[in-house]
């Protein structure tokens, strides 16, 4: 069976590199949005704004799930070389 992993492993190292950078950038973006959500939730919790707390929690959870799912696409580590060179 062929799935993304096998073709990813066969891809040129440059592509792997790009995938890695892309994933990290996406994760940083998601985490930044989450920080923003958390900040607004904290700010509004002081003001009894329950709706904001709930909405940001939903959003934050969704973003967390997306970032977990993104981790699936991390390129495999290089197979360990036969160690050690003398």
């Amino acid at each position: 069976m062929s799935y993304f992993r096998s073709s990813q492993n066969e891809a040129h190292p440059n592509k792997t590199n790009t995938v890695m950078t892309g994933i990290i950038l996406m994760l940083i973006l998601l985490v930044s949005i989450q920080i923003w959500f958390l900040y607004s939730a904290l700010n509004n919790a002081l003001d009894d704004n329950f709706g904001i707390a709930l909405a940001t929690f939903g959003g934050s959870l969704a973003l967390a799930l997306v970032s977990f799912w993104l981790l699936r696409y991390l390129p495999d580590p290089r197979p360990a070389k036969s160690k050690p060179r003398k």
């Binding site: 994760l27 985490v31 939730a41 709930l54 940001t56 929690f57 934050s60 967390a64 970032s67």
Partner: peptide, 21 residues
């Protein structure tokens, strides 16, 4: 590892937001 750490951090932020709720 960095990417995985970001994933973990993301989960922690979601948990924190849940704690506020």
């Amino acid at each position: 590892e960095f990417a995985k750490f970001l994933g973990l951090f993301s989960g922690a932020l979601a948990l924190g937001n849940g704690a506020i709720v």
